[in-house]
């Protein structure tokens, strides 16, 4: 029996969430007393594959055929299930990214495996009974879910498990899969990435602003603050509804859920629907001119003050910190 970890690449490179999945899978394999194999699909250079060894995994399988140059969940799920069967893997682990969400249920169905989606911590292992933890009710509760099947697929929430270095040397095996034509009816036409900015779901620091900023013309200082911190920018729902900011920045129950190390909320009241998407953040800083704003109740640090006075001072203070 072994643990197979699928590591997702973005245009040939592995992101932090991929290495989190590798570190997590290595820890799971140690817990279960099993071997670990990593699987990469698509064109990834040897030097990039070698990075997997940094996190304690030496057996790396790559599938790199022309047909699989772009992500198609049907075809990728078939390949992952095929490799899992051929390597006698009883546990498949992957990152719960946007693509991972489309893959994990398919892999589980193909393997007749139990699915533990969006796990936030290491499982407990007791024979074929594994228990994972995940957030439910829009982060208002944490559930312990028992997986009771011979096989299981676990998707790991990004930013929930820290990468652990444990360098080993890597040996790479090429695998030739059987891909059915019927798995390839989806064609990617275009991919649009905001290249100059930090991606919001993966960001370690998020600077977010709400209606308190008054209008789109005032976002310059929010962006400047984010840039100094290497942070992604986000906003509340009414801000994107009004067209002040793109919808891709809207966080909350109906937007993106984030769990960065640091979430800085400026001029956001802290409505329950907003909190649903951000309360899993490690540290929350709230800046609001109203001391009664509900957001202060869930904050670690707060400044009661006018954003237009506080942000410029913060920019100077963080600049001084970076230069010190």
């Amino acid at each position: 029996m072994s643990v197979l970890v699928y590591i997702e690449n973005v245009e040939g490179t592995f992101k932090k969430s991929a290495f989190e999945a590798v570190s997590y899978a290595k820890a799971v394999a140690d817990l279960a007393g099993q071997d670990i194999i990593a699987l990469s699909i698509g064109q990834v250079e040897e030097s990039e594959l070698n990075k997997i060894g940094t996190y304690g995994v030496s057996n790396v399988v790559t599938v790199n055929t022309d047909q699989l140059g772009q992500f198609v969940n049907q075809a990728y799920a078939s390949v992952i299930a095929e490799v899992a069967k051929s390597k006698n893997a009883s546990t498949v682990i992957l990152s719960n990214t946007f693509s991972g969400k489309g893959l994990a249920p398919r892999i589980a169905a193909k393997l007749s495996a139990a699915l533990g989606a969006a796990a936030t911590a290491l499982p407990t292992v007791d024979g074929n009974k594994w228990q994972i933890k995940r957030t439910v009710f829009s982060s208002k509760a944490i559930a312990t879910e028992e997986l009771s099947a011979d096989k299981r697929v676990i998707s790991l929430s990004p930013n929930a498990f820290e990468v652990k270095e444990n360098p080993v040397s890597v040996s790479v095996e090429n695998f030739q899969p059987n891909v059915a034509g019927s798995d390839l009816s989806t064609v990617i036409k275009d991919i649009v990435r905001a290249t100059d900015k930090v991606s919001l779901p993966e960001a370690e620091i998020v600077v977010s602003a709400g209606r308190g900023l008054k209008g789109p013309e005032n976002w310059g200082m929010v962006e400047e603050l984010a840039e100094i911190l290497g942070a992604a920018t986000a906003c509340s729902k009414p801000v994107s509804d009004a067209g002040w900011r793109p919808h891709s920045e809207h966080v909350g129950q109906t937007g993106i859920a984030v769990s960065p190390n640091l979430y800085i909320a400026i001029g956001i009241s802290g409505a329950i629907q907003h909190l649903a998407g951000v309360s899993a953040s490690k540290t929350i800083v709230v800046i609001n001119k109203d001391p009664e704003a509900p957001f202060f109740k869930v904050a670690d640090y707060g400044i009661v003050g006018d954003a237009f006075e506080v942000i410029p001072q913060l920019i100077e203070a963080f600049k001084a910190y970076k230069n010190s």
């Binding site: 973005v10 992101k15 990214t97 990617i188 991919i191 905001a194 991606s199 993966e202 891709s248």
Partner: peptide, 8 residues
């Protein structure tokens, strides 16, 4: 997708 969108 993370940090963008894909059209298929």
């Amino acid at each position: 997708i993370e940090g963008g969108k894909e059209i298929l």
